[in-house]
Simulated scan of single mutants.
Amino acid sequence: MSMPTNNEYRAPDTVEDSTVEPRRTTSPVLLTLLAFAVTAGGLIWWSQSRAPAEAPVATVPGAVIGDAAPAAPAGERAATNRERAERVATRPAPISRDARPLATNTEPKYPASMLRAGVGGTVVVLAEVDANGNPIEVRVVERSGERDLDRAALTAVRQWRFEPAMRNGKAVATSVKVPVDFTPI
């Protein structure tokens, strides 16, 4: 058998000589990526083509048609939407603060024996305060050095009321350290 030249066609001698090209398939990964790209493009197009929602128009009952004001032009509506968005953006953040004793709380009763002796000091009390401002548990965290002063401070703080702690505008239970000073006169 002779070698065919570039312009000659040679018929296959046998079935084994003929080459059958394998069937080409598309990778499932490529199909998934294509589907994702088409979906993402559609979502982007859809989100950018949506017009901003306009506020509903309020009507006055019993208004005469001739007295109705003309509709605001589109530019004015956009300006009012911007103003509304700016008002929302400039709203103060919800209040957050720690619990604190009310100013109306009574002073702790100075033990007479300590007052006569001229003994003073500061007691730091830790008060667990509920969301209503009531002390739940009270304990001394820094002692004054005098047991009578520590007891007087605990007794006073148990009877106090507090402004509750605020987190995101809501009252919450928390703990607060309260210094109680005993100064002899």
Rank of each mutant, 00 (worst) to 15 (best):
M3F: 05
P4R: 12
N7L: 11
P12W: 15
D17Q: 13
D17W: 08
D17F: 09
T19W: 15
R24T: 14
L30A: 15
L31K: 13
L31T: 04
T32R: 12
L33A: 10
L34H: 02
F36I: 14
A37M: 13
V38M: 11
T39G: 06
A40S: 07
I44R: 10
W46A: 11
S47W: 14
Q48H: 09
S49F: 15
A51N: 14
A53L: 15
A53I: 15
E54I: 05
A55Q: 12
A55Y: 14
P56C: 07
P56G: 03
V60C: 05
V64L: 11
D67Q: 13
D67E: 07
A69Q: 13
P70A: 09
P70C: 03
A71V: 12
P73G: 12
R77F: 10
T80M: 10
E83I: 07
R84I: 05
R84M: 14
R87G: 05
R87Q: 12
R87N: 12
V88G: 14
A89N: 05
R91I: 04
P94A: 15
S96W: 03
R100N: 02
P101L: 10
L102D: 01
L102I: 02
L102M: 04
A103L: 08
P108Y: 00
Y110H: 01
A112F: 05
V119Q: 00
V119F: 00
G121R: 00
V124H: 01
V125W: 04
D130C: 07
G133M: 09
P135G: 08
I136N: 03
V138N: 02
V140W: 03
R143C: 01
G145R: 08
D148G: 03
D150V: 05
R151T: 03
R151E: 05
T155L: 15
R161G: 02
F162A: 04
E163L: 08
G169P: 14
K177P: 00
V178L: 10
V180G: 00
